[in-house]
Design a protein around this nucleic acid. Sequence first.
DNA 1: GTCTATACGACGATAGAC
DNA 2: GTCTATCGTCGTATAGAC
Lengths: 195, 195
Amino acid sequence: MARPKNVDATLRTAQMYHQLIKTFRAKGYEGAALSDLSAATGLAKASFYHRFPGGKPELGRATLAEAGKRFADTVLRPLQSKVPADKRWSAMLDGVALFYADGANACLMNSMTIGDGAALFGKDIRLTLNAWEKLISAVFEESGTAAIVARQQAEDVIIRIEGALVVARMKDKPEVLAMTLEALRQWLMRDKASV
Amino acid sequence: MARPKNVDATLRTAQMYHQLIKTFRAKGYEGAALSDLSAATGLAKASFYHRFPGGKPELGRATLAEAGKRFADTVLRPLQSKVPADKRWSAMLDGVALFYADGANACLMNSMTIGDGAALFGKDIRLTLNAWEKLISAVFEESGTAAIVARQQAEDVIIRIEGALVVARMKDKPEVLAMTLEALRQWLMRDKASV
DNA sequence: GTCTATACGACGATAGAC
DNA sequence: GTCTATCGTCGTATAGAC
C-alpha cells in the first residue's frame, strides 16, 4: 500500500485521471487534443509536460495504465477471489457493468487502438487483454474444461463484451450491454441451473 | 444501372474510395488528415473540395456511404437471395470474411464513431446497422422464431462479429474473426446438423 | 507544481492557374 | 477536374515567471 504524504494531491491526481480516461475514451488518442484534456481536467496544457515529460504519448500511456489498474480492481480481482465459481462469474459481470457504466462508456482499449494509438499502445493493451483472458480461462478449467477449449471460451466471452460495447455505442443504446451480460450470465451459470 | 460516359473516370473514383475507406478505417475520422487521404489516393488536397464541396465532413459521409454500398453487396445481398436458409447464412458469413479481409480490416463504422464522427455519422451508421439486423432477423423468423427473439438473436450475431473484429485488431491476430465466424456457422446451422 | 506566453509545424480550407 | 500556392487556425511542445 502506498503511504501518501499528501492526501489532497493523490486525490487530485485520481480525479485528473478520471477525466483523462473519460476524454480519451470518447475521442480516441488523436481526437483528444491537449486543449480538450486541459479543459476536462482544469490543468494548463504546460502542466502536463511537468507530469509527463514524454509529452502526449506518455500521457496516453499513463492514462491507459491507470485505467488498467481500475479495470483490474473491478473486473479482474473478483475472478481471483476464493468463492464458488458462479459467484466469481457473477462478480465479474457486475464489475463489467460498473466499469463501463452500464454501456454508456466505450472501451478505452478500443478507442486507443485506432490510428497512431495502435503502434503506441498495442503491446500494453495486449497484456491487459491477455491477463483477462487467462483469468476467465482458469475458471473454466476449474470445472474440468480442457485448457485449449477454456482459452477459446474465454476469448469468446471477451469478444461478446467488446462487441456489446461497440454496438451499444453505434446504436446509442447502452442497454445492449446489459442484455449481453444477462445472456452471458445464463450461459456461464448453466451448471448451477441444471444441477 | 448507371451508364457511365467515361469508364476510366468511374474506375478511378472506385479506386479513390477504396483508398479513402482504407485510410479512414485504420486512422478514424479525426486521425485521417487530408494530407493522409491525399497521399493514399494520389489526389491533391484541393481536389477533394471539388468533389466534396462540404469539406471533410462530406468526404467522410460519402466514404461511409460508398462502404455501405459495398457492404450491402457482399454481406446483405446474400441474405436476400432465394436459396435455403442455411445457404444464405453461409453466404453471409463468407461475405463478412471477404469484406473484412479475414479479420485484417477493422470495422469502418467502429472507427468512424469515435470522437467527432459520432455526431457527424451516427445516424447513417445506425441505418446500416438496422438494415443488417432486420435482414438477419427475417431469416430467423422464417424458421418459426418469434419476432422479438429473432431480433435479439440478430443483434447477438452482429455483436459477436463486431466483437471479433475489435479483438482481432487489439490482439493483432486476424484469425480471431475466422474462429468466431466458424462458431456462428455451427450455431446458425444447428437445424441442418440435428435434422 | 502550476501558470502565461509563445514557437512552429500540421491542419482544414480557399484562390486561381491550367 | 486537377494542380500549386497560400491563408488562418489549432495542434503539440517549450520557455520562463511565480
